[in-house]
Design a protein around this nucleic acid. Structure first.
Lengths: 244, 244
DNA sequence: TGCTTGTCGAGACTGCTAGTCTTGTCAAGC
DNA sequence: GCTTGACAAGACTAGCAGTCTCGACAAGCA
């Protein structure tokens, strides 16, 4: 998450999209109050309003979902949330951070892939799930807007790096399990396979020139398995699922 | 190109990146002067300064090359070109159009792939050339800036659609030739192969998390050929170039 | 109870940029 | 010489991110 840590002014961590709702922020605040050096004072003054934070996230998500491309302004977020603009910037360092938080807050936290014990079905399911997520209208338009914002907001671009890296790792782990079972060649380039999946995904998602449906997902997964399977697997009965 | 057609105010055509230097704009202007209805008047007044147009493109390209991400402003382009801002908008409908023109003006006009008669080497060369183009510093930073601008300029986004479509078609033709020669399965999904190439390219180019060098190009090309080759090709001596 | 501290909503303000409009000048045809 | 339209220069408008200010308010502390 990228919410601003009270009293320190720094982000709470780099795990955007991975530790979304654990609110470790609260824990770290408590710790800092009791364990910091002698210069630390106990907290005084009015407390931050958690409801305001949630209202901002809700407003951002609603605007993201409704926007479909049109940029979402901080003014609009604040107005929709019934909150001052400064309050937004008290919790998050930039608009992009709010948007990404709003997106990942509601997204599936568990980005780890399925583990059925068979690479082909695992990969098919993973790719299909990824593609399907982008078909949901609200997610799609939110994702599109965040990417658009990331193009000119270096801070958000950095958060997106983490966002994508988390997902790449999940897919890579899935592939590594398959390789360990001998379903992929020992020298298969897992990173390239991962990037073929996400490359096709983003390329089609952002350009919109070709479908991203279940058929394509299945076809892509099968092609990748066929191209990288271990030599002893080649020609084995039932392993050559060349798609129609 | 997207330069504004004098006297009509509309773009000269949709073939961005394909018909860059043919200046069909001049031809169409001559035609309109002689063939339009009775309401048309012959041109009077000062002529447009072609040198200014070229100076704008040169300035835009120079700024794009130097920018590496930082947005290029219209003011800067006009100032660098020693030209009024209005002159920029007299030739092009938006900033993005100028940038894309500047990029494609100098780019290789011939986007058609090699044709050596063998799919594997054709594809290797095509992918390697594509990847290499993005390694050249000036092209890379220009491309990055244009993509960044396209993210928020709908007009430029449309031009980018044409830009990418032209390149997809070139690669697809290359693959289709290979399929006709029987090097790819008759039911291979050429569009998916194309998108795997450009997907990996853009994904790695924009995120920058993994290399885009000759080794990757070769590996990717070989993987794609292996995954989609015709059944009779499978196992044929010398056809299984599984990369290291 | 009153003081201090820090958050709150509201909104003014700064700085940046795309795109338009204005002005006075200049070149080309009639 | 007159008309027309391109030209450089730059003022202007509109939109938005992010900062700053203000008076109100809530919480801890003495």
């Amino acid at each position: 998450m990228s919410r601003t840590d009270p009293r320190t002014g720094s982000g709470a961590g780099a795990g955007a999209g991975a530790d979304a709702r654990d609110d470790s922020r609260e824990a770290s605040r408590g710790a800092s109050a009791s364990e910091q050096g002698p210069s630390a004072r106990p907290h005084t003054g009015r407390r931050r309003n958690e409801a305001a934070q949630q209202a901002i996230l809700d407003a951002a998500l609603r605007l993201l979902a409704d926007s479909d491309g049109t940029p979402v302004t901080v003014d609009a977020i604040a107005r929709t949330a019934g909150v001052g603009k400064q309050t937004v910037y008290r919790w998050w360092p930039s608009k992009g951070a709010v948007l990404l938080d709003a997106l990942t807050d509601r997204a599936d936290q568990d980005v780890s892939g399925p583990d059925t014990g068979a690479l082909r079905s695992d990969l098919r399911a993973f790719v299909a799930t990824t593609f399907a997520a982008a078909q949901r209208g609200t997610t799609a338009s939110a994702l599109r807007t965040v990417v658009r914002e990331a193009a000119r907001d270096p801070h958000l671009a950095e958060l997106m790096q983490t966002f994508t890296a988390t997902r790449r790792t999940a897919l890579r782990d899935l592939l590594a399990r398959g390789r360990e079972r001998g379903e992929l060649a020992a020298d298969a380039d897992l990173d390239l396979i991962v990037d073929q999946v996400y490359g096709v995904f983003w390329y089609r998602f952002l350009l919109g020139h070709a479908p991203l449906d279940g058929t394509v997902a299945e076809h892509l997964a099968d092609t990748l398995v066929n191209a990288n399977r271990a030599p002893q697997e080649v020609g084995r009965a039932g392993t050559d699922h060349r798609p129609r």
